[in-house]
Design a protein around this nucleic acid. Structure first.
Length: 571
RNA sequence: UGCCUCAUGGUGUAACGGUAGCACAACUGACUCUGGAUCAGUUUGUUAAGGUUCGAAUCCUUAUGAGGCAACCA
């Protein structure tokens, strides 16, 4: 791939986020600092949609010589684990990014607590004892104002006492919560006295049982940003209506003198939102991916059919291709649906330059070269990668009996079918020219053997008289072929019926034939393929030796992506 | 029917009051020891209606369409 992508350089187009930061810089805000963050909740594995966010968060920081933090947004202990944290780090690193600092939001619980107590003391928060159901009637609906909670004017000392006892674990989950006192008549629901602390007794993977009261996202996130010195907090569109609340919290911190300063200037974090990635035929919801894993519809989070970063990696996608994809899709606030064809283009473009060419036959039919004496063999020399002469060549034994792809032979060739057919000369890649003379069939008419002759003068694949041969097919020696497991993937998330998808019954919309496992004949060199290595099996597509099931001497190959067009007769 | 946001070819984006451009997809052709790749080319677009302006994708108004917000999730 080109240098731009290798260096993880950010998008060069002037999208609205870039302009936003440029304006801040021009206005001299935050003393010229640019600090961003990628703040996943460690409750699952990241997918291609997160890759977009990572690309933006890290890319914008890099563009302005700023810093980007990796932060675990772990304010809800019920779904979070250390394993997810470790996987998150692995995946972000694999994508090619290095964070300038790593944080757990949980490490800031004490600071958040202090701010919350301060809010209570200054009349900006109170302990509410309304149940969730009761609260619904007080909060009101978007089109009508809400009513104040009966606990809204609880004295600060009383709230403070209850708040501290919440923390100590004296109360049952749901019995009490801390609310910010803002505006029950606001058209923005998030301003109607939002909950900022709730009681949770589930142990936290990082802080254990030290806490029984946990901050809500809306309260915690701006504090995390402010305490880390984040200047530009970028997130997806659904948080747009939360922005006023984000600013409200930052204002409260400012009033308490809690904002960081740099050269005497306050670092005031701001939030902006961009559209999340939607891919055609692809389920991106973390909840649904979790369901696929839990119900064992897939092998694991890194199943090659999953849109997770780990799944793509195991499927054979490269970090370069994913970054190139992120650059191509751009950044906007329009909720678009990107065609997966673009993702596939990106991996083909990368693999085309780096993948080693090998010959393989997935659906074999035997070829017998009648004018080649039994027991003899020729040595063919083939390029390892025509796109990269430095990849060199290799020698392959060519024998009297071969396998070729069944699709590469047509008894009655269609128009423009230039491959093997009776009387039609074809090139056996890297070896020689071959002409089929006749076939042998079983009683059902299925072809068992293709017989023919080769041109002994065409060694290497070219006839000395210079005659042109339009078709070139791949082959493996029947004598030396290495049988191996190959898995072909179709799109797992094909949605034949959009209605079933929209009704939430997405499992019925999954393509049941998304994976086909078969035994293929490979050229002997493939026996030594190491997990993670990329190959192009000529016209069959790009493959990657599996990183999970491959064993030395017996690699399993996953198909990364097919070549652009597969030939089909046009009638 | 409250608030917020968005709308440019089939798809994704650029143009920031001054020639609607790029990429993917599709289709043509050239070349090729992969019907791949590469190279060249073609087709297709500013949601609608008003207004401001010498000039509007861009600014204003209205309409239409799409999405988000009523978890003690993030």
């Amino acid at each position: 791939m080109n240098e731009e992508i290798d260096s993880c350089s950010p998008d060069t187009s002037r999208h609205f986020l870039r302009q936003w930061i440029e304006e801040d810089l021009a206005a001299g805000r935050n003393d010229g600092a640019v600090v961003t963050r990628f703040p996943p909740e460690p409750n699952g594995w990241i997918h291609i949609g997160h890759a977009k966010a990572i690309y933006i968060d890290f890319g914008m920081a890099a563009l302005f010589n700023g810093r980007c933090h990796l932060r675990m947004d772990d304010t809800n202990p019920s779904k979070e684990t250390d394993e997810f944290v470790e996987q998150l780090k692995r995946d972000v690193s694999w994508l090619g990014y290095t964070w300038h600092a790593f944080f757990y939001a949980a490490d800031m619980f004490e600071a958040m607590w202090e701010i919350a107590e301060n809010l209570i003391l200054t009349g900006h928060a109170y302990i509410c004892a309304l149940s969730q159901d009761e609260w619904k009637t007080y909060r009101g609906i978007p089109t009508e104002p809400g009513r104040p909670s009966p606990y809204r004017d609880r004295p600060a000392e009383e709230s403070l006492d209850l708040f501290r006892r919440m923390r100590a674990g004296e109360f049952a989950e749901g019995s009490l919560c801390l609310r910010a006192k803002i505006d029950m008549a606001s058209p923005n629901i998030h301003f109607r006295d939002p909950v900022i602390y709730r009681i949770l007794h589930t142990p936290h993977y990082h802080t254990g049982d030290a806490w029984h009261a946990y901050p809500m996202y809306d309260f915690a996130h701006p504090i995390e940003d402010a305490l880390e010195g984040v200047t530009h907090s970028m997130c997806t569109l659904e948080f747009e209506v939360h922005r006023p609340l984000y600013d409200w919290v930052v204002d409260r911190m400012d009033a308490m003198g809690k904002l960081l300063t740099r050269a005497g200037k306050k670092i005031r974090p701001q939030q902006r939102e961009f559209a999340r990635l939607n891919l055609t035929y692809t389920v991106m919801s973390k909840r649904k991916l979790l369901q696929l894993v839990q119900e064992k519809r897939v092998e694991d989070w890194d199943d090659p059919r999953m849109p997770t970063v780990a799944g793509l990696r195991r499927r054979g996608y490269t970090p370069e291709s994913i970054r190139a994809f992120c650059e191509k899709i751009g950044v906007s606030k329009y909720e678009s649906e990107t065609d997966v064809a673009l993702l596939e283009y990106c991996i083909r473009a990368d693999l085309n330059t780096i993948a080693t060419r090998r010959m393989a036959v997935l659906n074999p039919v035997k070829v017998i070269i009648d004018n080649m004496p039994h027991g003899t063999q020729l040595i063919a020399e083939a390029q390892n990668n025509p796109e990269d002469p430095a990849a060199g060549t290799r020698k392959i034994a060519f024998t009297r009996e071969l396998y070729i792809e069944r699709d590469d032979f047509m008894e009655e060739p269609a128009k423009k079918f230039f491959r093997c057919a009776p009387g039609q000369e074809v090139r056996l890649r890297g070896a020689c020219l071959f002409t089929c003379t006749h076939t042998v069939k079983d009683p059902e008419g299925r072809i068992l053997e293709i017989h023919g002759t080769y041109d002994p003068l065409s060694t290497g694949g070219n006839a000395p008289d210079g005659r042109k041969v339009k078709g070139t097919i791949h082959w493996v020696s029947a004598q030396y072929a290495h049988p191996a497991t190959v898995r072909l993937y179709d799109r797992l998330f094909v949605i034949p019926d959009p209605l079933s998808h929209e009704s939430g019954d997405f499992l019925n919309a999954l393509n049941p034939d998304s994976e086909t496992t078969l035994t293929a004949y490979l050229e002997p060199a493939l026996k030594d393929a190491r997990p993670g290595e990329h190959y192009q099996f000529e016209r069959l597509g790009y493959f990657c030796a599996d990183t999970r099931h491959s064993t030395p001497g017996a690699p399993v190959f996953n198909r990364t992506v097919t070549l652009k067009d597969s030939w089909a007769p046009k009638n």
